[in-house]
Amino acid sequence: MSIEIKNLTKKFGNVTALDNVSLNFENNKIYGLLGRNGAGKSTLLNIITNRVFKTSGEILIDNENNEENDKAISKIYLMSEKTLYPQDMKIKDVFKWSKRFYPDFDTKRAYELSKLFDLNTNKKVKALSTGFTSIFKLIVALCVNTPYVFLDEPVLGLDANNRELFYKLLIEKYSKEPFTVVISTHLIEEISSFIENAIIIDNGKIVVNTTTEELLQSGYSISGKISDVDNYISDKEIIGEDTFGGLKTAYVMGRPDADISENLEVTSIDLQKLFVKLTNTREVK
């Protein structure tokens, strides 16, 4: 049980949005799909769910080709950044229709969650604010009970309290009955504690695909006097550096040397910092 993506390429005219991407989404894991604006995250999720057509490559959902395959596609729910529901439909009707399309949709739970988030189900889709539009879509995502749930920017416009509530509900659901979750978001620090795997996509290419634990161990930062730091990093792979007066911090791949001078300070890099350093191809001048 998994989603396999093999050599996927997508071109829009002469722009390559996805460039020979290969990766697997394994069963019952939580993935963070991270990338800068326009990196290709949404395109990838839309192609897997057959909403956008690929240029070349292959996608298998539990060993079945995804194209024109309703049975395979129905195993995935994509909470998309765009709101595709009819604007005049009431939320309670969205729940009704969701049940038609996804037989395992838990209507009772959807109303419970609406209450928790203070969502008025008599409102029409078009009458909702940005935050409540996200809330109603993520309620559907938390109730569809498909084996695969893709969340594309799930917390767009949500205040801190509602983001917290959503993360907790997601973890609670996952903990009781695991399913495969792929979360695409820019709020990396908020999900770094619970994603098991991190996939970083940059300019249509996969630059990182590993467990969060390994990724966090893959680099470190070292700081101290410029000359000391330069001396230490001379034979190392550097992903970035900041200077501040006579002080320098370098971001280094690999594990620190065993015998580091007392004048240098070693700290771990958090996921967000690693992400910024690994995808910083557009330098600030």
Binding site: I30, K168, I171, E172, Y174, S175, S193, F194
Partner: peptide, 8 residues
């Protein structure tokens, strides 16, 4: 997991 927002 829920309380500390961590993976089970």
């Amino acid at each position: 997991s829920v309380n500390y927002k961590i993976n089970p």
